[in-house]
């Protein structure tokens, strides 16, 4: 007889801690990010393609590195504007999304969205390159374990339909589904 061992499923979370007070505004993170993601690797650089951006307003002493997050097809219904310690940050300054409301985090020539991938590559890097190149330690890489919830994986069909709906609207998707389902064999 043995006691039942309850196993906790965990996952590794990768995080970049951003200390805006330590940022000296040099944009090395942008330069090395763009170079790392160039094809072939390091064959070019261009901060406009970077997946990290330092939002800089020197005369307000504002320097905020922001990592590119998820792509979103639609703007938020509302926008935000932070005031911290008397400094007024630009609209949606702390948002990571590649979104229609601004030209951040989009490839300059194709407009395709950019997203930080923590420099996942083969061979694996010890730390994302923006962190390695930030000698000011404004960017610090951290890893920790977090309990993984047993969430059902999102249904692939659901996801696909959602994307189509973003692009064409639910009405057209519904019409197309009805039309095609009626024509389908066995309908």
């Amino acid at each position: 007889m043995s006691a039942a061992v309850k196993t906790v499923k965990t996952k590794t979370v990768k995080r970049i801690r951003i200390d805006v007070d330590k940022c000296n505004g040099c944009r090395a993170c942008e330069v090395i990010c763009a170079a790392h993601h160039a094809q072939p690797r390091f064959s070019s650089t261009n901060p406009a393609r970077s997946r990290i951006r330092v939002i800089r307003y020197p005369l307000s002493d504002i320097y905020v590195p922001v990592l590119a997050g998820e792509y979103t097809a639609a703007e938020c219904p509302g926008r935000d504007r932070y005031v911290i310690g008397g400094k007024e940050y630009e609209e949606c300054a702390f948002c990571r999304a590649s979104c229609p409301s601004r030209d951040f985090f989009k490839e300059p020539d194709s407009d395709l969205p950019l997203k930080c991938d923590m420099c996942e590559s083969d061979p694996t890097l010890e730390e994302p390159l923006c962190v390695q190149w930030c000698l000011a330690d404004a960017l610090v890489y951290e890893e920790y374990e977090e309990e993984a919830k047993d969430e059902p994986a999102p249904d692939e069909v659901d996801e696909g339909l959602l994307a189509l709906a973003h692009r064409h609207g639910w009405e057209r998707v519904r019409d197309a589904m009805t039309r095609m389902a009626n024509k389908a064999p066995g309908a």
């Binding site: 170079a35 160039a38 072939p40 390091f42 064959s43 070019s44 650089t45 261009n46 406009a48 300059p108």
Partner: peptide
């Protein structure tokens, strides 16, 4: 918003 190219990337880096 254009690229700056590097001739021999790995050596340069």
């Amino acid at each position: 918003s254009k690229d700056i190219n590097i001739a021999r990337p790995m050596e340069f880096m």
